[in-house]
Amino acid sequence: MSLGSNLDLLTVTFYGTAIALILIGLYAALVKRSLIKILIGLSIVDSGINLLLVSIGYLKGGTAPIFSPAVIDKNPAMVDPVPQALVLTAIVIGFAVTAVALALVIRLYRHHKTVNIDEIKNLKW
């Protein structure tokens, strides 16, 4: 059994969810004043991008690109493995960047005793 039958609806669902996540995250990252909230926004953007990338690689009726003993002889259609590999890399890199960013937030809090971006402006933009 494959993914649901109604492809048009699923197109809207997956692309729509991904784009909605990207937009919501970007909104948070650009409007919110708390540094942590900004980073939460950025990680939501990352999620959206990853979902978008994986859903681009989907193939109707395809199965995971793994030739395990049960499926190797059936020679089934397989979804595109390349976006999956890219997303794998992107997720790990996203986590690394988030961790560094949060460390910076902790450092900033040590100096300024606040995480509000309006109060941290020793440097002008």
Partner: peptide, 26 residues
């Protein structure tokens, strides 16, 4: 840290756009 955070914020947005572009191309 402040300068670095600014850099990181803009850099993250940049990598987001880069991934989107790569995705469209692919």
């Amino acid at each position: 840290a402040e300068a670095s955070f600014k850099y990181l914020f803009i850099g993250s947005l940049s990598s987001t756009f880069l991934l989107l572009a790569i995705m469209i191309i692919y």
